[in-house]
């Protein structure tokens, strides 16, 4: 700001002038900051995308031993109804020996141990494992098998062999009724 030497401007006058400049600048800066927010926020998921962030899955058509694939937040979701033998096999494994130690009970809801709900995304590099479809290769442990780099998951969808570091991810979900779950 250019200084303006002026006889009629008193000490207080000078100070008031500075105050006005500062106030104007501060207001403008605040306004600019407020304008930036919608420009940033528009890149967040839109209302129609958020509306699909939670889905309902009907369990009634799934027979023991079967699995279905659904789409959840743009990713595959495996819903598998375990047979008693599979549950038993999963429970037999000593948890402490696993790469990602979790029991079947940790990965299912109490009282609904037969329903194994996981994302169909291999924790290695994000391929979709086989095993949910009829007749697909279920790997050495009868769960899922990722063909990309040979990761084998067991009947609790836990990593047992191959390069994947973690078990298949279990999304947040809740039973609304014995035959219906809400995912997300």
């Amino acid at each position: 700001m250019a200084t303006q030497p002026h006889d009629d401007l008193t000490e207080t006058g000078e100070r008031r002038r500075d105050f006005i400049y500062i106030a104007t600048g501060a207001f403008a800066a605040a306004g600019a900051a407020v304008v930036v927010w919608p420009l940033v926020n528009q890149m967040n998921p839109s209302a129609d995308v958020l509306a699909l962030a939670s889905i309902d899955v009907d369990l009634s058509p799934i027979q023991p031993g079967q699995a279905i694939k659904a789409s959840f937040r743009g990713k595959p979701l495996f819903v598998r109804r375990l047979m008693p033998a599979e549950i038993e096999a999963a429970n037999k494994v000593p948890v402490s020996e696993l790469r990602d130690p979790q029991s079947l009970a940790d990965r299912t809801k109490p009282g609904n141990a037969e329903w194994l709900i996981t994302l169909g995304v291999c924790t290695h590099l994000g391929c979709v494992p086989l095993g949910a479809g009829e007749g697909e290769n279920r790997g050495d442990f009868g769960g899922y098998f990722c063909p990309c780099h040979g990761s084998h998951y067991d009947t609790a969808a836990r990593i047992r062999k191959g390069p994947a570091p973690k078990n298949l991810e279990v999304p947040e979900y809740a039973f609304k009724s014995p035959t219906s779950v809400t995912i997300g």
């Binding site: 303006q4 002026h6 400049y21 104007t24 207001f27 306004g31 407020v34």
Partner: peptide, 22 residues
């Protein structure tokens, strides 16, 4: 907000030009 900002901008403008007008 813009009316207040414009008011302040006017005061700044008037101050800046005071010497020239004088």
């Amino acid at each position: 907000f813009l009316i207040i900002l414009t008011g302040l901008a006017y005061l700044s403008y008037a101050r800046v030009w005071q010497s020239v007008k004088a």
